[in-house]
């Protein structure tokens, strides 16, 4: 694994590397090298199987992390290529030319995280959500599902919450301390 990362480093500036397990490594590259690094790993290092492509919302840092998890079926190794992109502009080069399946991943990320992949075939088309969905991309962390459901639906009437210690205070020592 170490050699692969070293070879990758020669081609692209790798900003972080984590050896999670013997067969799993995470590396971080800058956005502009992201897709090229993925293509390099696929074409030259035998990481031909795309396990998944997903995003992590680091809301507090104002960034999205895209993780391209690649598998080398021969060496039985995985490498997670991570790219940080700005949360405001939320744009990334498409990688659908590398695997047809990427189209679906990018379509989903576009819909659920609001990350756009210009040039990817199904951007802007609904995938999971209802056509009538008007809200923000729901998998972003600032979209509060609980608040949304409380505002949209009605709670079952007649439910009440009693906190044991508050209740005991009311019953046993109402004068407090």
């Amino acid at each position: 694994m170490k050699e692969i990362v070293n070879r990758l480093k020669e081609k692209f500036p790798v900003t972080a590397e984590i050896y999670q397990r013997d067969d799993l490594t995470f590396v971080t590259v800058e956005k502009k090298y992201g897709v090229d690094a993925v293509a390099y790993l696929k074409e030259y290092e035998g990481f031909t199987h795309l396990v998944l492509l997903t995003a992590v919302d680091w809301l507090e840092e104002g960034e999205f992390q895209l993780t391209y998890l690649l598998n080398n079926p021969k060496a039985k190794h995985d490498i997670g290529l991570r790219v940080r992109i700005d949360r405001e502009t939320a744009e990334m080069q498409t990688a659908h030319h590398l695997w047809p399946a990427v189209t679906t991943y990018e379509q989903e990320l576009n819909e659920m995280f609001g990350i756009s992949f210009p040039g990817s075939p199904r951007q802007g088309h609904r995938f999971i959500l209802d056509e009538a969905w008007q809200g923000p991309p729901p998998y972003r962390r600032d979209f509060d599902t609980k608040k949304y459901s409380e505002e949209t639906y009605f709670p079952r009437p007649g439910r009440s919450k009693i906190d044991p210690s508050e209740h005991m205070k009311k019953k046993l020592y109402p004068e407090g301390m």
Binding site: I18, Q20, V51, L52, T54, T67, L69, D78
Partner: peptide
């Protein structure tokens, strides 16, 4: 931290990231 674990289910590779 982050990790990925996979298992072979009846349909293929099942994994959690």
């Amino acid at each position: 931290g982050e990790t990925y674990k996979r298992a072979e289910c009846t349909r293929g590779e099942y994994g959690y990231y």
